[in-house]
Amino acid sequence: MSLPRHATFTPIGEIVAQQVLPRLRHAQKLPLRISCIGIASYDDSGDVGSFDRTLVIGQCPSPEEAMMVASRRVAHDDILSDARAALRFRPRVMVIQDSDLGLVLAGEVRAGIVLWQQPVASDAEARRVVTEASRLRGMAFTATGRGDASSARDLRYRASLLEARLVDPFWRETADELLRLPEAA
């Protein structure tokens, strides 16, 4: 009686291809960078003295931890460091990127929570999102040209929310799984 070869041993090539290489690719993209896109100003003058700003919040070794850190910082209104105490900042979008600046996950900041955006499901959907975001950015450019800074900022914000769905293909499955967890809801 002889046993089939595959029933007792897994070829080393299969182990490398299915287990080792994916982990190495994943490790190369770490650590993850957390940043926040928002509106900054030096006083309470509203839209007149305000400007768009991106602040780097920190780094994390995993998407799960990055989501928790981002959510905690937003919930505690802890976006700015003490060195920039004179600056007022209103967070609008939290962004998690890998070391290659590929988008891992992004979400809208609203009422002290992060509403993580569902990643696109396909390249075709990504193309549609890029087309619509480009259209909105074009409208923002036109609004800026006619001196309507408030409309331009709102259009850029809407475009950013669409672009928040443009998760790097490497991370799409991970992001989708993270958003299925009860804690992300």
Rank of each mutant, 00 (worst) to 15 (best):
S2E: 02
L3D: 08
L3C: 03
P4T: 09
R5Q: 15
I15C: 08
V16N: 06
V16S: 02
V16G: 03
Q18H: 13
Q19I: 05
V20C: 06
L21A: 15
L24P: 13
R25M: 03
H26L: 10
H26T: 07
H26K: 02
L32G: 02
L32Q: 00
S35W: 00
C36N: 01
S45P: 08
S45W: 07
D47P: 12
F51E: 00
V56T: 15
I57N: 15
P61C: 04
A66P: 15
M67Q: 09
M67I: 11
A70F: 10
R72F: 14
V74L: 02
V74R: 10
A75K: 14
D78M: 04
I79S: 02
L80A: 08
L80T: 05
S81Y: 13
R84N: 11
R88C: 01
M94E: 00
V95K: 01
V95R: 05
I96Q: 00
G102T: 08
L103W: 01
L103A: 02
V109P: 13
A111Y: 03
I113T: 12
W116V: 00
Q117A: 07
Q117M: 09
P119H: 13
P119A: 03
A121D: 06
S122L: 03
D123L: 03
A124T: 07
E125M: 10
A126N: 08
R127M: 05
V130T: 08
T131L: 12
S134P: 12
R137N: 15
G138Y: 05
A140S: 09
T142R: 14
A143R: 12
T144H: 11
A149H: 15
S151P: 07
A152Q: 11
D154G: 14
L155T: 14
R158A: 14
R158S: 15
R158T: 08
S160L: 05
S160H: 11
L162Q: 09
E163C: 15
E163D: 12
V167S: 04
V167Y: 05
W171L: 01
W171D: 02
E173H: 15
T174P: 12
D176I: 03
L181D: 01
E183Y: 04
E183I: 04
A185S: 01
